[in-house]
Design a protein around this nucleic acid. Structure first.
Lengths: 118, 118
DNA sequence: ATCGATGTTCGTCGATTATCGACGATAAGT
DNA sequence: ACTTATCGTCGATAATCGACGAACATCGAT
């Protein structure tokens, strides 16, 4: 693991890139966890994909300017970049709100229709 | 040209799909024009790509549930789906706001630094 | 110095995406 | 009926993306 990870200058980010980074279910879940629980250890995300794939998604979010990755020993702690939330006012915020609403709706749906294909 | 174009039920849309559809510069421009000027004839978008490519992007937006396409004779009029704005509250709205802000900033930049490679 | 844990990078594979050119379908005007 | 205008669709191609496994780098502990 390199001793530092690259974090782009926010001036180099574009709206299209941010939205593209957010346009994936796995990355939306990462963002949702971060919004809900704040800084989070890298190994504690329960995504259904392999380690290198997680790295790929983490890099995508980081290079879009959305997350900050702090290395501490062999571990990595991820958090939302607060300055990114201000870069495109309300965009990330409204997405987070929509994610939470969607997840709540999903749970309600599962409670109604017991065990959908599981 | 088919006499009707397919518009998905909004219940079949996902947040990831919407964001993915918005995560492209060409499509963002389309959305910005629609937000600014309302229903717009298909042939009046000045995107720098070929006709079939425009079709592709239009289809992407339509299938994401973001736009409504009304056929009238040989022409096609595109507009934002108002119900989509309510599907994920504030998401599309904040994106539109960010697009306008970004375009305004671009113009200001060009005025400051005269003729950037043009 | 060696080992194990953690996480990134690289190479690869299949699927998707963006682009174009060519063709087909529909409608309006002559 | 013929012509033109407007689009959508199909086929092809190059690029990109998501996923995985293998290899590498760093840290902490033995």
């Amino acid at each position: 693991m390199p001793r530092q990870l690259h974090h782009p200058d926010l001036k180099d980010t574009t709206l299209a890139r941010v939205l593209s980074a957010l346009g994936d279910p796995v990355r939306l879940r990462i963002i949702a966890v971060l919004a809900d629980r704040g800084e989070h250890p890298r190994e504690d995300f329960d995504l259904g994909v392999g380690p290198s794939t997680v790295s790929h998604h983490m890099k995508t979010l980081r290079e879009a300017g959305l997350t900050y990755h702090r290395l501490e020993g062999t571990r990595c702690f991820v958090s939302l970049r607060e300055d990114a939330l201000q870069r495109f006012p309300a965009v990330v915020g409204s997405v987070l709100q929509a994610v939470e609403a969607a997840e709540a709706a999903e749970e309600a749906e599962e409670a109604e229709a017991p065990a959908p294909a599981s």
